[in-house]
Structures are given as structure tokens and as C-alpha cells.
Amino acid sequence: SEIVVAMYDFQATEAHDLRLERGQEYIILEKNDLHWWRARDKYGSEGYIPSNYVTGKK
């Protein structure tokens, strides 16, 4: 599975969105859409994140 790191904070506005915290790692579950990826955080929460807010883990 692909691990990404959040470059920016993202506040979830929709129920299906996942909040991003800058510097935290997330697991990508689905990339069915170019701009919104389904991800899981370290607490096990899942939701959609803006793909341009994250970068591949170095």
C-alpha cells in the first residue's frame, strides 16, 4: 500500500472527507478520482483527501 505525507492541513467539510494534519502519514486506499483519493489515517479513520495536499513518502 502507498504511504503519503500531508504537506498542508485540510479541514474535512463533508462527512466522507478525512482531515489532514501537516506532516502526518496516510495510507492510500483508492485513487479512482484524480483530485480526491480515499485514505486512512493512523487512528483508522477513512475518507477522501485532496490529492494535491499530499506527497509520496521519501
Rank of each mutant, 00 (worst) to 15 (best):
Q24T: 04
G56S: 14
A12S: 12
T55W: 07
D9A: 05
L20Q: 01
E46D: 05
V4K: 03
N52Y: 10
K58G: 14
Q24Y: 07
E46S: 05
Q24I: 04
Q24M: 11
R40K: 10
K42E: 06
A6C: 06
P50M: 04
E30S: 10
P50A: 03
I27A: 08
L18R: 01
S1K: 13
Y8R: 13
H35Y: 13
Q11S: 11
L29H: 00
H16N: 13
M7L: 15
K58C: 14
P50H: 05
A12Q: 08
V5I: 14
W36I: 07
I49P: 01
N52F: 10
Y48E: 02
L20N: 01
N32T: 14
L18D: 00
E2P: 08
D33L: 07
A12P: 15
W36S: 05
V54D: 02
T13S: 10
K42I: 10
L29F: 05
A6S: 05
E2S: 09
G56D: 13
V5K: 06
N52R: 12
S1T: 13
T55I: 13
E14K: 14
K58R: 12
E2H: 11
I3C: 09
S45K: 15
V5H: 05
R38W: 15
K31A: 08
Y26S: 00
D9Q: 04
Q24V: 06
G56A: 15
I28Y: 03
K42Q: 11
A15T: 11
E21P: 00
G47K: 00
D33Y: 09
T55S: 11
H16G: 15
D33H: 09
S51G: 06
F10R: 11
I27L: 12
E25I: 10
T13E: 10
K42T: 07
H35I: 12
S51V: 09
A12D: 06
Y53H: 10
K31I: 05
N32L: 13
N52L: 10
P50R: 05
H35G: 11
I49N: 01
H35C: 15
P50E: 03
A6R: 01
Y8C: 15
P50S: 03
Y8W: 12
Y8S: 07
E46G: 01
E25P: 07
G56L: 14
K57P: 10
F10P: 00
L18V: 03
D41W: 03
I49Q: 02
F10M: 05
A12T: 10
A12R: 06
F10T: 04
V5D: 00
I3G: 04
G47N: 02
D17S: 13
G47H: 02
R22W: 07
Y43E: 09
G56H: 15
Y26R: 00
H16T: 14
G23W: 07
D9S: 09
L18Q: 01
G44R: 01
P50W: 05
E21W: 07
T55G: 06
Y53W: 07
K57T: 12
L34I: 12
A15S: 11
V5F: 08
K31R: 10
R40W: 03
H35K: 11
N32M: 13
L20A: 00
T13P: 10
I28W: 02
S51Y: 06
H35R: 10
S1E: 14
E46T: 08
D17A: 14
K31Q: 07
N32E: 11
R40T: 05
W36H: 06
I49V: 08
G47W: 03
N52C: 15
L20M: 10
D17V: 14
A15Q: 11
L18F: 05
K31V: 05
D17E: 15
E14Y: 12
G23T: 04
I27R: 07
V5L: 09
L18N: 00
L18T: 00
V5Y: 09
Q11G: 09
E25N: 07
Y43D: 11
Y8E: 09
N52A: 14
E30D: 14
V54N: 01
Y26C: 03
R22S: 09
F10V: 06
E14R: 15
L20I: 05
I28R: 01
L20T: 02
Y43N: 11
G44Y: 03
G44P: 01
Y53D: 03
A15K: 13
H16D: 12
A15E: 13
E25S: 10
Y53T: 04
D41H: 01
A6E: 01
D17G: 14
L34S: 12
V54S: 00
Q11T: 12
S51N: 06
Y53K: 08
T55K: 11
G44A: 03
T55D: 08
M7P: 01
K31M: 08
K57G: 10
L20K: 00
K57C: 13
A6D: 02
D33W: 07
W37N: 01
E2C: 15
T55V: 13
R38L: 15
E25M: 10
S51K: 08
I3T: 09
T13G: 08
S45N: 15
Y26N: 00
V4R: 04
E46N: 03
S51T: 07
R22K: 15
K58N: 14
H35L: 12
L20V: 04
R22Y: 09
N52D: 13
D17I: 15
R19I: 09
L34K: 13
E30H: 07
T13N: 11
D41V: 01
S1W: 15
H16W: 14
G23L: 05
D41E: 01
G44E: 02
N52E: 12
V54G: 00
S45F: 12
A15D: 12
G44I: 04
L29Y: 02
Y48L: 12
I28K: 00
V54I: 07
E21H: 08
L34W: 09
S51M: 07
E2Q: 11
Y26H: 01
L34N: 13
Y53F: 13
H35T: 09
N52W: 15
F10Q: 03
Y8V: 09
A39L: 04
I27W: 11
E21C: 11
E14I: 08
H16C: 15
Y26W: 01
Y8K: 11
E25C: 12
V4M: 09
Y26G: 00
A6V: 03
R22M: 11
D41P: 00
V5M: 08
R38S: 04
I28L: 08
V54W: 00
D33K: 06
Y26K: 00
H35F: 13
D33M: 09
D41K: 01
T55M: 11
Y8Q: 10
Q24K: 09
I27K: 06
R38F: 15
D17W: 15
K31W: 06
E25D: 08
R38Q: 06
Y43K: 07
Y48M: 13
S51P: 08
E21G: 03
E30M: 08
V4A: 06
H16M: 10
P50C: 10
A6W: 02
L29W: 04
Y53M: 12
V5A: 02
K58E: 13
W36E: 05
Y53L: 13
E21M: 08
G47T: 04
N52M: 11
Q11D: 14
Q11H: 13
E25Q: 09
K57N: 10
A12Y: 04
A15P: 15
I49T: 01
K31P: 02
D33G: 10
Y48F: 13
E30T: 06
V4H: 05
Q11F: 14
L34Y: 10
H35A: 08
H35N: 11
S1A: 14
K57L: 13
V54H: 02
N32V: 13
D9G: 04
A39K: 00
A39T: 01
E30I: 05
Y8M: 12
I27Q: 10
R19A: 14
Y48D: 04
S1N: 13
V54C: 04
A15Y: 08
Q24A: 10
Q11Y: 14
M7E: 07
I3Y: 09
Y53S: 08
A39N: 02
Y48I: 08
I28H: 00
V5R: 06
E2K: 07
D9I: 03
R38K: 14
R22G: 05
K58W: 12
F10S: 04
G56R: 12
M7Q: 08
L18S: 00
W36Q: 07
L20S: 01
S51R: 08
Y26I: 03
E25G: 04
R40D: 02
K42F: 07
G23K: 02
I28G: 00
R19W: 07
I3E: 04
K31H: 06
